[in-house]
Each structure stands twice: as C-alpha cells, then as structure tokens.
C-alpha cells in the first residue's frame, strides 16, 4: 500500500514537472528559433566586421557587447541595421565614427539577428519580435 502511494506521488510530481517544462518551452521555442536563425544571419552579414565573438576591431569597428547601449538604443537598432550608420557613437566608453553599411534584410531577419546579438557576447536582453521591428522601422530617421 505504501509502495503504491510512493509511486503515485512520484508520478504526480513527474507530470507537474513535465507540464511546467512544456509551458516554458512554448515561449522559449520562439526565442530559440529566432536565435538560431539570427546566428546564421550574423555569420553571413555581420561577422566579417564585428567578429565571430562580437568583439569588433580595435577603434575601427565597435564591439556588440555593450548591453547599456543596446538597451538605450533598443528602438533604433532595426533602423541602424537596415539603413546603416553614419556619425559618432559611443560604445563601452570608446568613440567610433566610421560608416556602417546598410544590410538589405527583411523585418523578420532583422528581428532574428537582433535577438541573436542581444543574447550573445554577454548580453541577456531577451527576444525582439518581428512586430516590434516593423514598428521601429516606421520611425527611422
């Protein structure tokens, strides 16, 4: 009798655990998809300049690990990727003033690559969705 009770308790616990895990993976599945697609885009479109570790290149090309900058400029990242960047920026306390070329990417691809960047190189800023990117792209300067 006792034996059966133990089994029942263990299986209930297992079921609850499974439920929690599957719930979690529903939200993280989308993140994982964004992240892995973004990794591929990063390799083909960004890595040459920013490096495979996102470390940039001396004072010529900025690193992508400045979480404060990424947070502060959250709504202009999509525009920067889509249309490039000119002028002086400050990253990790260093000044950069080279031109970044525009990347012809679709809103979905931009969302994926930002999600990859925002959660690599020491950044932990979560997902950026295609809807957010589409909204941001409407307000490019």
């Amino acid at each position: 009798m006792r034996y059966i009770r133990t089994i029942a308790a263990v299986s209930t616990l297992a079921i609850i655990t499974l439920l929690i895990v599957s719930c979690e993976s529903n939200t993280s599945l989308e993140f994982k998809r964004y992240y892995s697609e973004g990794a591929e885009i990063y390799q083909t479109r960004c890595q040459n300049c920013h490096g495979n570790d996102g470390a940039g290149l001396s004072a010529l090309i900025p690193a992508l690990n400045d979480s404060t900058f990424l947070k502060k400029n959250k709504n202009s990242l999509a525009c920067t990727i889509r249309y490039g960047l000119k002028g002086v920026i400050n990253i990790n306390g260093k000044t950069f003033d080279e031109n970044m070329p525009a990347a012809e990417l679709a809103p979905m691809e931009i969302a994926q690559v930002i999600t990859y960047m925002n959660n690599s190189f020491g950044n932990q800023l979560g997902i950026v969705t295609m809807d957010e990117v589409e909204a941001d792209l409407k307000n490019c300067k």
């Binding site: 040459n48 300049c49 490096g51 290149l57 001396s58 010529l60 090309i61 070329p101």
Partner: peptide, 13 residues
C-alpha cells in the same frame, strides 16, 4: 573595404 578586410586586419593584428 567592407568585406574581407576587417577579417584580414584582425588576423594581421
């Protein structure tokens, strides 16, 4: 040069 040069510079460093 936007394509291979940064990679070359990184390696030459």
């Amino acid at each position: 040069c936007p394509s291979i040069c940064p990679q070359m510079a990184r390696n030459m460093l």
